[in-house]
Write a protein that binds this DNA or RNA. Sequence first.
DNA 1: CACCACAGTATGAACGTTCAAATGGGGTGT
DNA 2: ACACCCCATTTGAACGTTCATACTGTGGTG
Lengths: 354, 354
Amino acid sequence: MTQKKPTLVSLAESIGVSRQTVSNVLNAPQRVKPATRERVLKAVQESGYRPSAAARQLRTRRSMDLGLRLTPVTDGINGAVQDRFLHALTEAAQDAGYRLTLYSARDDEEEIRHIDELLHVADLDGFVLTGTHAGDPRTAWLQEHAVPFAAFGRPWSRTEDPFESAHPWVDIDGAAGTESATGFLLEQGHRRIGFLGWRPDEGLGDDRRAGWHRAMEAAGIGGSLTELSAATDDDVAAGASAVDGLLARGVTALVCASDSLALGAFAQLRAVLPPEEEPAVVGFDDTPVAAAVGLSSVAPPVADAARRIIAVLSHVLAGRPAGEGPQRHQVLRPSLVVRKPYALGRTVPRRQGG
Amino acid sequence: MTQKKPTLVSLAESIGVSRQTVSNVLNAPQRVKPATRERVLKAVQESGYRPSAAARQLRTRRSMDLGLRLTPVTDGINGAVQDRFLHALTEAAQDAGYRLTLYSARDDEEEIRHIDELLHVADLDGFVLTGTHAGDPRTAWLQEHAVPFAAFGRPWSRTEDPFESAHPWVDIDGAAGTESATGFLLEQGHRRIGFLGWRPDEGLGDDRRAGWHRAMEAAGIGGSLTELSAATDDDVAAGASAVDGLLARGVTALVCASDSLALGAFAQLRAVLPPEEEPAVVGFDDTPVAAAVGLSSVAPPVADAARRIIAVLSHVLAGRPAGEGPQRHQVLRPSLVVRKPYALGRTVPRRQGG
DNA sequence: CACCACAGTATGAACGTTCAAATGGGGTGT
DNA sequence: ACACCCCATTTGAACGTTCATACTGTGGTG
């Protein structure tokens, strides 16, 4: 019953043409006379012929396979971002005809070793980099070795214009995110809006802080903005313990660099503020935690980013000129998801009515 | 500078042996005389030779590549389990010399089509199945086509003994998890402990309910256990709205089938119970949400499961007999993570002292 | 009518590896 | 001395594609 797997040769013989003709029908149909093309296509359908990726790869040195590093989930909360990104990337790659291979590495150097390995043994066509940072050794290495790649995250650098960078990248506009979060709080009448973020990093964190800063200045609340800003570790406890100091400086609302911080801050505010005051806190990343708990949060369009990364990378891999096709450097605007605190105790009314 | 990539032939010529000898040094060292082996190994090191996966695959029909379906994250909270599993699986596969290829599918049938495709086109060696359920068409298809695979999740079936199943699987003992959660609540003096779970599914959900049931009966609290049990959708809101009915039946503590349910239930209890009563709720899956919010939860050893799945699958793929090597069917005990509610408002004292 | 251009198709070679079988040198036993 | 065997190594062939080139027939052109 189970036929032996058909090959180009066996299939060609069965319909009386040469293997190259069958190959042409699949790879360069315009070269083949319509009549023969039909005949071959029919045979392909009926036999269920599928070209062997290994043989093709051996000959062409292309694998139609992309690599992605799976970073260790340091913070369980923000790890969810990676999850959404990965899923969208898988689908987009699949739709574009690429397969996706995962590898795991502890640091950039180990990642480079893995890339090198995958490049040599498996002929991977390209890579998707995440978590780019200032002085990233990976981008340098990849460029030096002329390996196609696209990054999720702009090349953070003080000296060079990211829009001049040689490699394609897609990033989220963190500043625009915190800016609109701040705008939202301003609309609600808050004036002394604090920012709770990470220590200066010349990257993601500073970007998010910058958006808040910009919005505050635009609203005419310049002056001593630094005293409204706090920098800590990225976890719930740190978020909670940073609140007291900010409150002492008259802060009435908070924009946070992450949902972890926002959650901690919210809980602490809840405990410290008088019951009638609803804490005004906005997080960042729109993680499941924020959704579950009813916390407003800036939602980065990670799925969209993943699709665009695949689009620009497959454009490069197809050998098309950088001039046409998708933009090589893209900054995507996040949206603000406004929620009413839900699972945090007080908002569920103690007793609805009589 | 950049040499052309060395091959078996070029390398063999450079040291004056045949290509097969070099191949043997790498694949069957015992066949080669120690002296030559040394000489070849040295040349391999110096040249940085790496065998071509494509050529090897073309000849051997083995790709050293495993497939895994990335399921759409339906519930953001429990999706984190997938994240941890995936990471551990990637590392384990990597350590075992396998690569991991992802694909995405909306349902079982689409997954089967993808598996079929990957099998023919890319010669994948095996697959890891997740989310097995009663009457799973995937296991049937894979067995019928003699495709090696291992499942995360036992084959849920009323008619057949899972420990007799032909394919290897690793699963978490959900019943043991809820049982120990119930035991923990019993120790704290609770008697009427409720169970908040999903609608009957003859699988995961029933298993978790069964553990609670078992523990209650063992504690002599038999009788009308069904009235202490509720079944709803798996989300925070559903968890919250199920609470009132259970309270009416005298429930003082809750074991839940998921962290989503637990979070909803906890928030609702917080709102309904008198302030001095700390809600006693245990979730399941030990998700980041539970950690962030300070909710006790049953922690499934997913990373361990991933490693064991790779272990048993690579054992099968190496063609070793089922008798020796890792157990083909493994049930792993979860642990209970006990936390003090943290970010849920009231537990952070309103005002510490004076 | 010989010649050329060209579309359509076919053939030889190569990609780099492993399997199967062949070869070459020691021993060892009679 | 000869047959024999065993170990270490080599050689031929094959896996299924695509590239480069060669062939074939048809129609147009001088």
